[in-house]
Structures are given as C-alpha cells and as structure tokens.
C-alpha cells in the first residue's frame, strides 16, 4: 500500500521545511509556557481590570482569567496564529507542489512512468505529509513538556489535555491536507492549487474568528472545521475529543477518497 522509496523521497524533499517548522513550533510552545510559568501576572491583570469602568469589566469573564493560567497558556500556544500559519504553510506547500506542481514541471509524468501504482503514489504522499505534520506538532508538545518540567509544573492534569490538543490539531491539519490534495489532484498548476487551498483555509479561520464576536455567525459555527478544534476548551474539559475527532475524521475520509479517485482518473499532465 505504501512505497517506502517515495515516502523517503518526500520526507527528504521537505526536510528543511520540516526542521524549521518543528523548531519554530517547539520553541514557541517552550517560550509561551516558560513566560507564563515564570511571572505571577494575575495581580497585575486583576489590578488593571479593577481600574476599568464596570461596563468594560463585564467583557472579561472569569473564563478569560482561567485561560490566562499556565494551562491556558499551554493550550493557547497550539492555537497561536503563527503556529497555525507555519503548519498551514507546510501542509499546503507539500500538497500543492507534489501533485499539481510536479504535473506542471513534468516530474509527475516521469514518476508515473515507473512501475508505481497511482493509488500507492497518492496514499504514500498522504501518509508522508501526515507524518511531517505529526513530527512538527509533536515537537510543540515536546517544547511544552520541556518547559513545564524545567519549571517543575509538570503534572498529569496538564499533560493529558495537552496530548488531546495535539491529537486534535494533527487531525485538523490532516483534514486541511486532504482537501489540499484533492484540489491539487484537480489542478495542473502548483500556484493555483496552493492559493485555492490557502483561501479556503483562511476563510474557515476568519469566519470562525468573526463568529466569536458576531453572535449571528455563532449559530453556523458547527459547519466550520475550526469549531472542532478549540484547545482552551480541551484544557478545561469543556469539549469532547471524540466528537471533534469523529467529525474531522469523516471529513478527512471524504476528501481523501475524492482526492484518490480524482488522481487515479486524471490525465497526466
């Protein structure tokens, strides 16, 4: 089902981006947790809130203050726009370049003239990018755990939710990768495939962000993929991991199946 030679090639092709992303995400997590574990910022924030007029003070709920705990900070790191951006960059670059890009520059034609089944090629590519994402997200977990252990704040109460967040984030990006591969299988130009995947992902992200400040959109948030990834809620046990994974896995399977079907039946180039 998997072609080891092609798998190793794709990992080699993106090793630079994988190393950069892993270091960035790992360091980011380490730094955020370290900062929140180093300073007692709660009195400062409470003093600041007390000085605000009553009408403004109600905007900051108690939940907001709990999110500012070390647990909240660890979860926030995995939801930081820069972390999501780096993961998105890796996902969309690899997905659009390996099919649409290689179709454009002729490498795919040569590849598929070798005795490798199209199905095997696609599944190996899908697995390979999933593995890249796993390595990068895992480095974020390592960064968090390292920081927590150095600050002697490591406990099961924080590690278990962090593991849930990591799994949830990974499945979310596997879904993004699956629809990016589907788009890439339909396109003949890397740039078009990449831009289309990026636009769809950004659209989901901004609509989800707007939903948090615009109650009208809130009713439709269940249609948004980012609704099924809310790390702060995982940290405070306010959401079911199983429900999130089920929805994301079903969508991933649909995109994977359609992408595979499209790739097997498409003309090269």
């Amino acid at each position: 089902m998997l072609n080891k030679t092609y798998l190793l090639l794709t990992l080699r092709l993106y090793r630079g981006l994988i190393v950069f992303s892993a270091l960035f995400v790992g360091f980011m997590q380490f730094l955020i947790v370290w900062i929140f574990a180093s300073f007692d910022y709660m009195p400062v924030i409470e003093a600041f809130l007390n000085q605000l007029p009553q009408q403004m003070r109600v905007l900051f709920s108690e939940q907001f203050l709990t999110y500012l705990s070390i647990n909240g900070a660890a979860a926030f790191g995995f939801n930081h726009p820069l972390v999501l951006l780096v993961l998105g960059l890796l996902t969309i670059t690899a997905s659009s370049r390996q099919i649409a890009g290689e179709s454009e520059n002729g490498i795919l034609e040569l590849h598929l003239a070798y005795p490798i089944q199209r199905k095997t090629f696609f599944i190996t590519l899908w697995f390979s990018i999933s593995l890249m994402l796993f390595i990068v997200i895992l480095s974020g977990l390592v960064g968090s755990l390292l920081s927590l252990s150095l600050k002697a704040k490591l406990s099961l109460d924080i590690v278990l939710p962090l593991v849930k967040i990591v799994i949830n984030l990974w499945i979310l990006f596997v879904l993004i990768m699956s629809y990016s591969l589907l788009i890439s299988s339909m396109e003949r130009e890397s740039s078009k495939a990449g831009i289309l995947s990026a636009v769809i992902t950004l659209l989901f992200y901004f609509v989800f962000f707007l939903g948090s400040i615009w109650t009208f959109l809130d009713k439709f948030q269940f249609l948004n993929i980012f609704y099924y990834y809310q790390p702060q809620k995982h940290m405070f046990q306010q959401i079911s991991l199983l429900k999130n994974l089920s929805v994301l896995a079903i969508l991933t399977f649909i995109c994977f199946y359609l992408g595979l079907r499209q790739f097997v039946h498409r003309d090269i180039p």
Binding site: N105, G106, I107, E109, L110, A113, P115, Q117
Partner: peptide, 15 residues
C-alpha cells in the same frame, strides 16, 4: 504496472 516494469521512458522534456 506490470507493463511499465518492463518499459523505459525518456520524456521529451526530461526534468
């Protein structure tokens, strides 16, 4: 697949 195993191919624009 079995046919391509026994074939060699040089594309016009080899890249």
């Amino acid at each position: 697949d079995s046919i391509r195993q026994k074939c060699g191919y040089l594309p016009g624009d080899f890249s």
